Amino acid sequence: MRLAGPLRIVVFMLVLALLWIVGSLVTGQGSPFNRLHLMLSGPQELPTAGEVLMSSVKNNVGRGLNIALVNGVTGELMDTKSFFDMWAGDSGINELLKFLRPVYEGTLVFVASYDDPATKMNSEAKKLFSELGSKAVQVLSFRDSWVFVGAKGIDNKSPFEQHVRNNKNTNKYEGWPEAVEIEGCIPHKVL
């Protein structure tokens, strides 16, 4: 498959980013502004304390939305969901809603799409992602590339979001747009 090479690069970048987060929190060597550092690409690997929790190698990421919840104060990984299938049936959207509804204030929500983030996305799911700070969720379409980091209780829209539309005239990989990536720091005061 032609996506294997780019997907490996994306996975590698996410592993480095999340190891950076955990390392800076464990060693206490964050910036003077006490920030969480992050880099996110989709689809992703999600490590904690050197252990990879989600990856294509472990066969626990998949079509739809891949999501991790991180404590916004400690940086501790709280929960992951291998994938919410946004293409087939209603189980993906129903499970997504059950997963996002109880998210409490101060929780960081890391999202990376793979294949299709939007076909089964309903208004309640869009509202939940909007409350986490997403702008792009309102315009997601079939096979768009989307990565997002938001937080419950965020005052403004999250600056940690990238969205590339699926367009047969501009797609980089046959039927898919290019992979997207975000990079930056999340100040604690934003939460």
Score class of each variant (00 low, 15 high):
M39Q: 15
M39W: 05
M39G: 06
L40I: 15
L40A: 05
S41E: 05
S41F: 02
G42L: 03
G42M: 03
P43G: 00
P43D: 01
P43R: 03
Q44L: 14
Q44H: 07
E45Q: 13
E45W: 06
E45V: 06
E45A: 12
E45R: 11
L46T: 08
P47S: 09
T48D: 10
T48V: 09
A49G: 15
G50Y: 02
G50R: 06
G50W: 01
G50N: 05
E51W: 11
V52W: 00
V52G: 01
V52C: 05
M54Y: 00
S55K: 02
S55P: 08
S55M: 09
S55H: 12
S56K: 12
S56R: 11
V57H: 10
V57L: 10
K58R: 15
K58D: 12
N59W: 08
N59I: 09
N59K: 06
N60D: 15
V61E: 07
R63L: 15
R63M: 08
L65I: 04
L65K: 01
N66G: 08
N66M: 10
N66D: 09
I67P: 04
I67G: 01
A68V: 06
L69V: 01
V70R: 02
V70W: 00
V70A: 02
G72A: 11
G72S: 14
G72H: 04
V73N: 13
V73S: 05
V73F: 07
V73T: 12
V73M: 14
T74M: 14
G75Y: 08
E76P: 04
E76M: 10
E76Q: 12
M78D: 11
M78Y: 03
M78L: 12
D79W: 03
D79R: 13
D79P: 04
D79E: 08
D79V: 07
T80F: 04
T80C: 14
T80R: 07
K81R: 13
K81F: 07
S82I: 05
S82R: 13
F83I: 08
F84N: 02
D85K: 01
D85F: 07
D85H: 01
M86T: 07
M86C: 11
W87L: 12
A88G: 08
D90P: 12
D90S: 09
G92P: 14
G92Y: 00
G92V: 00
G92D: 01
G92R: 00
N94C: 13
N94M: 11
E95C: 08
E95T: 13
L96T: 04
L96P: 06
L97H: 08
L97Y: 03
L97N: 06
K98S: 06
K98E: 07
F99R: 04
F99I: 08
L100N: 00
L100E: 01
R101W: 13
R101L: 09
P102G: 06
Y104H: 11
Y104A: 11
E105P: 04
E105R: 14
G106L: 12
G106Y: 03
T107C: 06
T107K: 01
T107H: 02
L108N: 08
